[in-house]
Design a binder for these strands. Structure first.
Length: 212
DNA sequence: AAGTATCT
DNA sequence: CGTT
């Protein structure tokens, strides 16, 4: 059946423990973007500094009990926004629900994120390949939601120098990785300029983690 | 090094 | 290469 073939083509296994769920978040994308606006009103996007002193091209904020931060002191999770001293905005129920459903679809039932890093990419913004290794329990997966402008996702291997696959990720796509793929090096190529109906000239990424 | 520059 |  054509519909089944289409549905099949929307899911791609990258490696054992790593899946691209094409369009998985499309239906809730408007609700997610409303949530992002509310979060940014309370905890504005800001370009953090790496421990090496370079300003990141991606602007970030967080919601949930913990938020990922970086500054001269290093990479870590913080329960308060360093800009305001107040707790990060609560994780909207629609965020948590989407993350849990995506994790379950990828074989990680029971995922309960306590942190959501919100990344804002403008044209030229990028994320150099890295591992997500600041979380306490590496047995918990990562759920990454793409909204707005399409991007090129770089999917590497267990070592920094491993070759990277280049995957186009579009509005509503969700990537989930865990288990044997949990420490895979990954990144985002410099964002190409463009316009998208829901987010204008930007890409928004929501990355859900169990941090604490 | 979740950063960049520079060379083959 | 270096406010890792």
């Amino acid at each position: 059946m054509i519909a089944d073939l289409f549905a099949e083509s929307r899911t791609l296994t990258l490696d054992p423990g790593a899946m691209l769920l094409g369009g998985f978040a499309l239906g809730v994308a408007p609700a997610l973007l409303e949530g992002v606006a509310a979060i940014a009103a309370a905890a504005p996007f800001r370009q953090m500094a790496t421990p090496g002193g370079r300003r990141m091209s991606v602007a970030m904020t967080n919601c949930g009990a913990a938020g990922w931060v970086t500054d001269a002191a290093g990479y870590r999770y913080a329960t308060a926004d360093p800009l305001s001293g107040r707790p990060w905005p609560a994780m909207p129920p629609a965020f948590r629900d989407l993350a849990r459903r995506a994790a379950t679809a990828a074989g990680f039932a029971g995922f309960d994120p306590d942190a959501c890093l919100v990344n804002l990419y403008r044209p030229g913004a990028r994320m150099a390949p890295h591992q997500d290794i600041d979380e306490r329990d590496m047995g918990e997966p990562i759920v990454s939601v793409s909204l707005g402008l399409s991007a090129t996702f770089l999917w590497g291997g267990a070592a920094r120098g491993d070759p990277k696959r280049r995957l186009r990720i579009d509005h509503g796509d969700v990537l989930v990785w865990g288990g044997p793929a949990r420490r895979t090096f990954h990144g985002i190529a410099p964002l190409a300029a463009g316009t998208q109906p829901d987010t204008g000239e930007t890409r928004i990424n929501l990355t859900f983690r169990r941090a604490l």
